[in-house]
């Protein structure tokens, strides 16, 4: 464990806490893409298949359980909660995310570290995570204005993978045969996808204005 990875995990945790805060405090999920939340639940469920077979550390197991539980809780809340689900922007959240699942799975079959069930699903979860934010960014683009908590949620969600890139660089130079090129390339793509959002987020923060995304 290094400081970059720990910072990344904490930033990721903060993004989830901000999302939960937004939904429970405002009893509204406006501006949140249910499709992105469903993709993230799938990412965690397929990535942590080794949850009960390989014990890494208490921290690792607890964080995996938190990520799985929180992503499922958000999906269930947005689908079932009678008050929250009324505020879901159903007609704006129309990204065809099934294509993202299909593309990630095909790519995982072609490009993986080892052609085993667990490795293919791990690669699938890595590719899917890089694309999972797309429905959310499209939704924000269409709705134009971004409320603070939603903006902070997306910001922290993007920032965590940037910390992981620093972690991979650090591990590359400190551990002899460390090679996570699948996660690294995918993590770079993921961080770049957030780039335009980061730009407009920084501009709105600098002008202390409400964040507006160009339609």
């Amino acid at each position: 464990m290094n400081i970059f990875r720990f910072a990344g995990d904490m930033t990721h945790l903060i993004s989830i806490l901000v999302l939960l805060l937004k939904i429970y405090a405002t009893k509204s999920c406006s501006g949140i893409s249910l499709k992105t939340q469903e993709l993230y639940a799938l990412v965690f469920l397929t990535r942590y298949l080794d949850l009960f077979t390989d014990f890494i550390s208490v921290y690792n197991t607890i964080m995996k359980l938190v990520f799985i539980a929180s992503s499922l809780a958000v999906v269930c809340c947005m689908r079932m909660h009678r008050v929250v689900r009324r505020s879901y922007d159903k007609d704006l959240d129309t990204f065809r995310h099934y294509f993202l699942i299909l593309a990630s799975f095909v790519l995982a079959l072609l490009v993986n570290e080892k052609f085993t069930f667990q490795e293919i699903f791990w690669a699938f979860s890595i590719y899917l995570e890089a694309l999972a934010i797309l429905p959310q960014l499209v939704l924000l683009q269409r709705s134009g204005n971004v409320d603070n908590l939603t903006g902070q949620y997306v910001f922290f969600l993007g920032a965590y993978r940037a910390f992981y890139i620093l972690n991979w660089i650090y591990r590359y130079f400190t551990e002899q045969h460390f090679s996570r090129w699948i996660a690294c390339v995918s993590g770079l793509v993921q961080t770049v996808l957030y780039a335009d959002f980061f730009y407009y987020y920084f501009i709105s923060w600098k002008n202390n204005a409400k964040m507006q995304l160009p339609a």
């Binding site: 990875r5 995990d9 990721h12 990535r47 080794d50 390989d54 890494i56 550390s57 690792n60 964080m63 995996k64 990520f67 570290e113 080892k114 490795e119 791990w122 992981y164 972690n167 045969h177 996570r180 996660a183």
Partner: peptide, 10 residues
Amino acid sequence: TEPSDLKDEL
């Protein structure tokens, strides 16, 4: 599984 390909990252 060998420790090398253990996925120790989240």
